[in-house]
Each structure stands twice: as structure tokens, then as C-alpha cells.
């Protein structure tokens, strides 16, 4: 074996490896900066008090509250639809059928639509068309036909639909075909087979999808900027028809619209740390469940 060539090869391999290191470094620097810059702001008051003095002081409670509120509505909308779609695609649909191809194509494309286009759509469809239409037929104005949690959450739900579908399908694929055959051969109906044999085993995979969807939903700003999120609200939202503050948008507003940026940055750092901690821990949970499920799968179960 030519020694020179071996050394050359190892250097080249090392170079590709350094790309991995670079990614790790990016991750570390972003995390490090935000942890160092943000941890000083963290306190109980920070998490439980509203923001004050034109966002140069106080906490982020309303943003956390609004985020949780909107994510709940998003989940209620997206999980059943996403799971049902995946069940259809994996359990019922025949692969060659036009409808199947159309649904798959639509899901793929939905995943690629830019987030800001979802924002435009939410404004045009939910607020003006549906909301405005509702207001019109109820003979009032400005109840549904304006930005609010409901429309923002539904916009987020549409945007995250592909994620739930893909995760659920992967979970369904992991259930051995032999078990479906076993159930059907015992005289279970198709739905009974899905309900009692397939879904119980797919639950952890579906949960992964749900967790990742929450994480992604928590960080999305573009789709909700015009469909419900507010710069600043002096009160907490009570109804899905209220506007809301949310963490991601709050960070954006604080850093780009603040009257006194130097006073705001520490607060924004703290808020970013909270958001990052939330999305990271959700992602970690998702990744752990997923790799657990996958290794179970490799073991044959």
C-alpha cells in the first residue's frame, strides 16, 4: 500500500470530518452565546411578570402564556388531521391511485411552501374570507375578521401538517405487516386492526411527531405575524378570538423595534434562552423517543 496515498487520503477524510466539527462549533457558539447572554435575566419574576417600560424591563409571562395557548389550539387542529391522513396513506390508499398520488404530492408541496406564504394565506383565507364572512353573516364587525389566536394557530397547524403526517407514517411503517395479517385472519375488521393492533404500537412514533411539531410551532414567527400575534398587549388573552403575544415574535419585536436596544438586549437574550431551552428539550425528547423506537425496530420489535 502506497504510504503517501494513505496519508493524503486521511487528510482528505479529516477535511470532511472538519465539516462535522464546524457544524458542532456553530451549534456550540449559538448555544453558548445565548446561554451566557441570557442566563442572568432568568428569574422567577422574568417568567411570571409581564414586560414593562416599553419592553426594556420586566418579564415575558404574557408571551409564554400566549405561545402555550396558540400551540394547544394548533395541536387540537393538526394532530387528528395529520394522523388520519397518515392512516389513509399507509393503511387504506392503494399506491397507484390518482388520489393517493395527489395527496402525497400535496403533502410534499405543503412542506415546501415558505412560511411567510402561509402568513399571507392565513390573512387572505382565515381572516378575510372565513372571518370576514362569519362577521358579515352574523351582522357584526371585527370579531372573527381580525387577527387572533384561532387564525394564527390554524395557520400554524396547516404549516405543520406535513410533519405530523410524515412522523405518523414512519410509525405505521414500523408495525410489522404480519401483525396486521394476524388480526385480519382472526376476523378483525380493517378498522379494528388499525385501532387495536397498529395504532397502539405507533403511539410513540406519533408522539415524536407531536413533540417535534410543538417545538417547531413554538419557534415559527412568519406565519403568525399577520394572523394573530401582537407587538404588545397589556392583558392576557382569554378567548381564541383575542390577539396574543408569543415568544418568538416577542424576541423579534424586542430586537427590531425597541426604543432602547441596549436595555432590551439582555431581556431579549433571556427570552431567546427560554425559547431555545424549550425547543431544544422538546427536540431532545423527540430524538430520544425516535432513536429508541428505531433501535427497537432493528431488534425486530
Amino acid at each position: 500500500m502506497n504510504n503517501k496515498r494513505r496519508i493524503g487520503d486521511n487528510i482528505r477524510i479529516g477535511l470532511t470530518g472538519s465539516a462535522v466539527l464546524l457544524i458542532a462549533a456553530i451549534l456550540a457558539v449559538i448555544l453558548g452565546t445565548i446561554i451566557i447572554g441570557g442566563y442572568k435575566s432568568l428569574s422567577c419574576e422574568f417568567l411570571t411578570k409581564p414586560s414593562t417600560d416599553g419592553m426594556t424591563a420586566g418579564g415575558i409571562f404574557p408571551a409564554i402564556f400566549g405561545m402555550v395557548f396558540s400551540l394547544l389550539i394548533m395541536l387540537i387542529a393538526v394532530v387528528p388531521v395529520g394522523v388520519a391522513t397518515a392512516i389513509y396513506l399507509h393503511e387504506y390508499a392503494r399506491p397507484g391511485l390518482l388520489l393517493t398520488k395527489l395527496i402525497r404530492g400535496a403533502v410534499n408541496n405543503l412542506a415546501g411552501v415558505p412560511s411567510i406564504v402561509f402568513g399571507l394565506f392565513g390573512l387572505g383565507f382565515f381572516i378575510q374570507f372565513i372571518g370576514g364572512g362569519l362577521d358579515h353573516s352574523l351582522g357584526q364587525s371585527g370579531l372573527f375578521g381580525q387577527p387572533c389566536i384561532l387564525w394564527a394557530s390554524l395557520t400554524l397547524a396547516l404549516m405543520n401538517l406535513p410533519m405530523i403526517i410524515v412522523a405518523t407514517e414512519e410509525a405505521l411503517r414500523a408495525v410489522p405487516q404480519a401483525e396486521r395479517a394476524g388480526a385480519l385472519a382472526l376476523g378483525a375488521t380493517k378498522w379494528q386492526t388499525i385501532r387495536h393492533v397498529v395504532l397502539p404500537q405507533a403511539v410513540s412514533g406519533i408522539m415524536t411527531g407531536v413533540v417535534l411539531t410543538i417545538s417547531r410551532g413554538a419557534g415559527e414567527v412568519a406565519p403568525i405575524m399577520f394572523t394573530g400575534a401582537a407587538y404588545y398587549l397589556p392583558y392576557l388573552p382569554k378567548l381564541p378570538t383575542d390577539q396574543f403575544m408569543t415568544l418568538g415574535y416577542h424576541i423579534f419585536v424586542m430586537t427590531t423595534q425597541s426604543p432602547d436596544i441596549d436595555a432590551t438586549v439582555p431581556i431579549a437574550m433571556g427570552a431567546t434562552l427560554v425559547l431555545l431551552a424549550l425547543t431544544f428539550s422538546l427536540n431532545l425528547v423527540g430524538i430520544v423517543i425516535r432513536s429508541h423506537t428505531r433501535s427497537q425496530l432493528r431488534k425486530g420489535r
Binding site: 457544524i23 456553530i26 451549534l27 449559538i30 445565548i34 412560511s115 417535534l212 417545538s215 417547531r216 413554538a218 419557534g219 415559527e220 414567527v221 412568519a222 418568538g248 415574535y249 424576541i251 423579534f252 430586537t255 431579549a268 431567546t272 425559547l275 431555545l276 425547543t279 431544544f280 422538546l282 427536540n283 431532545l284 430524538i287
Partner: peptide, 12 residues
């Protein structure tokens, strides 16, 4: 994990 960083955080 890198993919999980919200774009608003990257922007920030």
C-alpha cells in the same frame, strides 16, 4: 438539534 433552532433565534 441545529435544525431545531427556530429561525427567529438564528436571526437574533
Amino acid at each position: 438539534l441545529l435544525a431545531g433552532i427556530p429561525s427567529v433565534v438564528l436571526g437574533f
